[in-house]
């Protein structure tokens, strides 16, 4: 059996203030899979995401990326894991911190060693893919929320990660941008984990879905089946938009 792209085993995490956010989370994602992570507010989705590139370390359990265990003591492997797992955070303001869009997108590749012309090319390519090249010299905090979200996606794309993790990428995007983002994501040859409250979006992009509730994985199956299971949905406060039908 080949290594899973992402393997989480019995992960538990308690925040410093004593809030137990993850109880016992296990999941396995194969290379090239596109998986949606669903669940109500406060179910621990963002917390789980932060474990995937070694920002948080579980109190027990483990996370492995491509067979390499995420170990906060091992700086070398951590560096490699962070360059192969690209995370787009829920709030773009957490992600953008450089004075201009261009510099912000260049930040990651620069840290990975890209310089000069190579760096410029990578930046240009990433910004063009999200349609933000025109705004390259603007300060990120002068952009609209949706524009910031696109730039945040570009900052991660520019690092050409092997696994892309997105925390609610479609929230606050207008319908056209939402569709364009889906096109971008579908065009990537990459393993994808997408946290979302947008069930049709999950259906559109991801074969498979996981449902997280109260710090446990309570369902793991094909997206279509999960969305058909009205009992499961209502138990975990998940709702399809009015009039939306899964056939």
């Amino acid at each position: 059996m080949s290594e899973a792209a992402l393997l989480v085993e019995s992960l538990a995490y308690e925040y410093p203030d004593g809030n137990l956010a993850l109880h016992d989370v296990s999941l396995r994602i194969e290379r090239g899979e596109r998986v949606a992570l669903l669940g109500p507010n406060g179910s621990g989705k963002t917390t789980l995401v932060k474990h995937l590139n070694g920002i948080l370390a579980g109190n027990s359990g483990s996370v492995s990326v491509d067979g390499v265990r995420v170990d906060l003591q091992n700086k070398d492997s951590l560096r490699r894991i962070r360059s192969s797992v690209g995370v787009v955070f829920q709030d773009p303001d957490d992600q953008l911190f450089m004075p201009t869009v261009r510099e912000d997108v260049a930040f990651g590749p620069f840290n990975m060693g890209a310089r000069g012309e190579e760096l410029d090319l990578v930046v240009k390519d990433a910004l063009e893919r999200v349609g933000m090249w025109e705004l390259r010299d603007r300060p990120p905090h002068h952009l609209s929320f949706g524009q910031r979200r696109r730039v945040a996606v570009a900052t991660v794309l520019s690092m050409s990660p092997k696994i892309l993790v997105l925390d609610e990428p479609s929230s606050n995007l207008d319908p056209a941008s939402r569709r364009e983002l889906a096109d971008i994501l579908r065009g990537l040859d990459i393993t994808l984990l997408m946290v979302t409250h947008d069930l049709p979006y999950a259906l559109e992009l991801c074969e498979r879905s996981l449902v997280l509730a109260g710090g446990h994985v309570v369902a793991d199956s094909r997206t279509r089946e999960i969305l058909r299971d009205t009992d499961l949905l209502s138990r975990h406060r998940l709702e399809l938009p009015l009039g939306f039908r899964v056939d």
């Binding site: 709030d91 303001d93 260049a106 620069f110």
Partner: peptide, 22 residues
């Protein structure tokens, strides 16, 4: 906490203590 999140994002993108020379 906000700063922490920004800092985490920087770590996620390979920050190692040196801001890029622009």
């Amino acid at each position: 906490e906000r700063g922490e999140r920004v800092y985490l994002a920087m770590l996620s993108r390979g920050y190692s203590g040196k801001l890029p020379d622009t």
